[in-house]
Amino acid sequence: WKITIYDQENFQGKRMEFTSSCPNVSERSFDNVRSLKVESGAWIGYEHTSFCGQQFILERGEYPRWDAWSGSNAYHIERLMSFRPICSA
Rank of each mutant, 00 (worst) to 15 (best):
A74V: 12
H76R: 14
V38Y: 05
R28D: 09
R65H: 14
N73V: 08
W69Q: 07
G41R: 03
C52S: 14
K14Y: 06
T49M: 08
Q55F: 06
S50I: 08
S21K: 06
G71T: 13
R60W: 05
T49Q: 14
F51M: 03
M16F: 06
P85G: 02
Y6N: 00
P64S: 09
E59I: 06
W43G: 03
F83C: 02
K2D: 00
Q55G: 10
E47W: 02
Y46A: 01
E78Y: 11
V33C: 13
M81Q: 13
I57E: 09
F11Y: 12
E9K: 05
N24W: 02
Q8F: 02
H48P: 00
S88Y: 10
Y75I: 13
K2S: 05
F18G: 01
E39P: 03
F30K: 01
N24L: 01
Y75M: 13
S72P: 12
S70Q: 10
F30E: 02
G61P: 04
R84I: 05
D7P: 04
L58F: 10
E27N: 08
M16I: 10
S72W: 07
S40F: 07
E17A: 11
S35P: 02
I86F: 13
Y63Q: 05
S88M: 10
M16K: 10
E27A: 10
V25S: 04
A42L: 12
N10Y: 14
N10L: 08
E62Y: 08
Y6S: 00
E17G: 09
E78R: 15
H76I: 09
K14T: 11
E39V: 10
E47Q: 07
Y75W: 10
S70M: 13
F83G: 02
F18E: 03
E17Q: 12
E62Q: 07
N10C: 06
N10G: 08
Y6D: 01
F51L: 03
S20T: 12
F51K: 00
G61L: 00
S70H: 11
Q55L: 02
P23V: 08
R65V: 07
A74T: 14
R15K: 13
R34N: 03
I5A: 06
M81S: 08
W1M: 14
V25M: 04
H48D: 13
S35T: 01
L36N: 05
Q54Y: 11
Y63R: 00
K37N: 05
T19S: 09
M16W: 06
W1L: 10
R84Y: 04
I86L: 14
A42R: 15
H76E: 13
S72C: 13
N32L: 10
A89Q: 15
S40E: 15
E47P: 06
K37Q: 08
